[in-house]
């Protein structure tokens, strides 16, 4: 199945809003760290419902926000959630970004980067569109050290890239980005049921659920264009 087919389905069944709610727990902490100045242009790769860009408009007075998604239904949903004239959505693919060189101040991506058919090509594209000193904030819950995410691949027909922390740093550097930071951001908000309620539908033990959210959380790697 293509990205379009898979995620158009998610969009029409409302999963864009469900992801927004869950991802927000950790995404907001990563978004708060981005040194966005008033007027800066931000590109959100795999924007889903588009919440991240809207938050950067509200909290940091970002200038233009471009949300790019491979699923037309996602982009249409996202456009429907805002009247802000400074926010635009477009359909495109991670493998060939439709922007000129040095046109973007910051690139953001939450839970989307690893769907790139060729993640190194995508990094090279990001390095191309960023202006010198621009940042790439790459946030993922699906990564090697997060053992509880490994089985996600079975649920989706698109091939996912499962790098570990070091592979992220190495690949950023190979694409010409400096690595400025790497961190895991815990999800302190998701409700974890009491011991007695385990096993649940998704979790065998409470310990595993605690480890998944409170410890592994979201892996953030921050690159800076030279």
């Amino acid at each position: 199945m293509s990205v379009r087919e898979e995620f158009d389905d998610w969009a029409t069944s409302g999963r864009d809003r469900g992801m927004e709610e869950r991802h927000w727990h950790t995404a907001k902490h990563a978004l708060a760290r981005i040194p966005v100045e008033p007027g800066d242009t931000v590109l959100d790769l795999g924007c889903g419902s588009g919440y991240a860009g809207r938050a950067l408009r509200d909290t940091k007075d970002a200038g233009r926000i471009y949300g790019l998604d491979g699923s037309p239904e996602m982009a249409h949903n996202a456009a429907g959630y805002t009247d802000d004239e400074q926010v635009s959505y477009l359909v495109g693919d991670f493998g060939s970004l439709p922007f000129g060189e040095n046109t973007i101040d910051h690139v953001w991506s939450m839970e989307a980067f690893y769907y790139a058919a060729d993640p190194r090509e995508t990094l090279a594209e990001i390095a191309r569109v960023l202006r010198p000193g621009g940042t790439f904030y790459c946030a993922v819950n699906y990564y090697e050290e997060n053992v509880h995410s490994h089985q996600w691949q079975e649920k989706i027909s698109i091939e996912m890239t499962r790098w570990d922390r070091e592979q992220y740093r190495d690949a950023f550097r190979e694409s010409g980005l400096y690595v400025a930071e790497q961190d895991t951001i815990p999800d302190r908000e998701i409700t974890i049921p009491a011991e007695a309620e385990f096993p649940t539908q998704n979790w065998d033990t409470r310990e595993e659920m605690v480890e998944r959210y409170r410890e592994f959380g979201t892996l953030l790697t921050v690159g800076v264009a030279p």
Partner: peptide
């Protein structure tokens, strides 16, 4: 451009809606 949203997928990834 559909409904105000430009579709800049490479042509081989684009399907007609």
């Amino acid at each position: 451009i559909d409904d105000g949203i430009p579709n800049l997928l490479p042509p081989d990834m684009r399907e007609e809606s």
